[in-house]
C-alpha cells in the first residue's frame, strides 16, 4: 500500500492537466517554427526569415503598424490619463459611466466597430439642415482613414489602458499629490505632465504594451479601412506563400511574448488578456 499512498500524494491529475495545457500551447508554436525553417529542402535554415524580412513591403507595412501603434498609445494616454485623474479627483460619480464605456469593445467587436465607422464616416460632413459640405468623407483620404483607425484602435485598447491607469492611480494618492503641487503654484498642465504621469509610469507602460500587442497584428480595422498595415500584408502573404508567413507568424509571437514579458516584469501582476481575435 505504501507505493499507492505515495502515488496518491503526487498530484497526478494536476500534472496531467498542466502538461496537456503546455502541449496545446507549445505544439502549434513548435510546428510553426519547424515549418518556417524548412524553406530549403533537406536542411534547416533561416532562409524563410531572410526572404520575408528582405521584402520591402514587409518593412513598409511593419513600420506603418508601429507608427499606428505609437500614435494610438500617445492618443490613448492623452485621453485616458486626464479622464481617470479628473474622475478620481473631482467627479467620482462619473466612474460608473466611464467604466461602462471603456468596456464597450467587449460588446462591440472590431468587425462591428469598423462597420459602424465606415457607414458613419463615408458620407461628407454637412452643416446640419443644409447641403453645404464642410469636409470630405473621412474614408476618402489618407489622413481621414488614419484618424479613423487610430480612433478605432484607441477604442479597442480602452479597456486595458483605462483599467491599467486607474489601478495605477489607486496606488498613488493623487489628491494629496495634487494639493501639494497646487500649494507650490503648479498649474494643471504641470500637475498632469510632471506629477501624475511619472507616478503612473508602470501602469502606462503596461497599458502601452498591451495596446502595442493589439495594434501590430491587427487585421480587421486595417483591411476594411484600406490601411497598408502589417496585418493585411501578412494575410495576403499567406494566400500565396508557404514558408514566409510561418516565419512572420513566429516573429509576431516573439513580439507578443516580449510585450507580455515586459508587462509581467514591471507589474509582477496577473497579466491581462487582449487581442484582435
Amino acid at each position: 500500500m505504501t507505493w499507492f499512498s505515495k502515488f496518491r500524494k503526487l498530484p497526478f491529475w494536476s500534472w496531467f492537466w498542466f502538461l496537456l495545457g503546455v502541449l496545446y500551447f507549445v505544439l502549434p508554436l513548435y510546428a510553426t517554427l519547424d515549418f518556417s525553417l524548412r524553406m530549403e529542402r533537406g536542411t534547416l535554415s533561416l532562409k524563410a526569415y531572410e526572404v520575408a524580412f528582405s521584402d520591402p513591403q514587409f518593412l513598409n507595412t511593419f513600420l506603418y503598424s508601429i507608427f499606428l501603434a505609437v500614435m494610438t498609445i500617445i492618443f490613448s494616454i492623452a485621453l485616458v490619463v486626464p479622464t481617470a485623474y479628473w474622475i478620481r479627483l473631482r467627479l467620482p460619480q462619473a466612474r460608473r459611466i466611464v467604466e461602462f464605456i471603456t468596456l464597450m469593445p467587449f460588446v462591440v467587436p472590431a468587425i462591428i466597430l469598423v462597420f459602424g465607422l465606415i457607414r458613419i464616416y463615408s458620407s461628407p460632413f454637412e452643416i446640419p439642415f443644409t447641403s453645404i459640405v464642410i469636409m470630405q468623407p473621412l474614408t476618402n483620404f489618407k489622413v481621414g482613414t488614419n484618424i479613423l483607425i487610430i480612433g478605432g484602435y484607441t477604442v479597442l485598447g480602452l479597456p486595458y489602458m483605462y483599467r491599467s491607469v486607474d489601478t495605477g492611480m489607486r496606488t498613488v494618492d493623487v489628491r494629496t499629490l495634487t494639493e501639494a503641487a497646487q500649494s507650490m503654484g503648479a498649474n494643471w498642465g504641470t500637475i498632469i505632465t510632471k506629477i501624475i504621469l511619472p507616478n503612473v509610469r508602470t501602469a502606462l507602460l503596461s497599458g502601452a504594451l498591451l495596446t502595442f500587442a493589439i495594434v501590430v497584428g491587427e487585421v480587421v480595422l486595417a483591411s476594411f479601412l484600406g490601411i497598408p498595415a502589417f496585418g493585411p500584408y501578412l494575410f495576403l502573404l499567406g494566400q500565396h506563400r508557404a514558408y514566409e508567413p510561418a516565419a512572420l507568424a513566429f516573429t509576431t509571437f516573439l513580439l507578443t511574448w516580449a510585450a507580455m514579458g515586459i508587462i509581467q516584469m514591471v507589474t509582477g501582476g496577473q497579466g491581462q488578456a487582449a487581442g484582435a481575435h
Binding site: 500551447f25 498591451l210 500587442a213 493589439i214 497584428g217 491587427e218 487585421v219 496585418g231 501578412l234 494575410f235 499567406g238 512572420l248 507568424a249 513566429f250 509576431t252 509571437f253 507578443t256 511574448w257 510585450a259 507580455m260 514579458g261 508587462i263 509581467q264 497579466g271 491581462q272 488578456a273 487582449a274 487581442g275 484582435a276 481575435h277
Partner: peptide, 10 residues
Amino acid sequence: GVASNFAGVP
C-alpha cells in the same frame, strides 16, 4: 497572457 493575445492571422 501571451497565448490569449496570440490570435488572428498568425
